[in-house]
């Protein structure tokens, strides 16, 4: 576990960089994490994905898989990989303040 300060708050992340406590998450923190992940700004299209992920996690207890995000948030593979380039599965979960997605698809 590591502790760091982002967007003015101190957060704990696990060894892979996922937020330990989903309750400390807020939109400003999401932007700070996104910037750490190389995404300069969060557009409404990004938020559509992040909001879906947070709702999914609340309902199901785990971060959604990429296929679940595409079907649930109504976006295509190309759009998802363009919004969160180079590894959307982990990036989306990190920015949404959730753990690593559970599931293979």
């Amino acid at each position: 576990m590591n502790t760091k300060t982002l967007a003015g708050i101190t957060i704990d992340v696990n060894d892979e960089g996922f937020l330990m406590d989903a309750d400390v998450w807020n939109p400003a923190l999401a932007l700070a994490i996104a910037q750490e992940e190389g995404i300069a700004e969060l557009t409404p299209a990004h938020w559509q994905v992040i909001d879906f992920c947070r709702h999914h996690a609340t309902a199901n207890g785990a971060a959604p898989t990429l296929k679940a995000i595409m079907d649930g948030a109504g976006i295509t593979t190309k759009e998802l990989f363009a919004l969160f380039p180079k590894g959307p599965a982990k990036k989306v979960a990190k920015i949404s303040g959730l753990g690593k997605p559970e599931g293979c698809v």
Partner: peptide, 12 residues
């Protein structure tokens, strides 16, 4: 297909 998709999801 499964491993390739997982790899892409992880930025590989």
């Amino acid at each position: 297909l499964v491993m390739g998709w997982a790899a892409l999801g992880n930025g590989v």
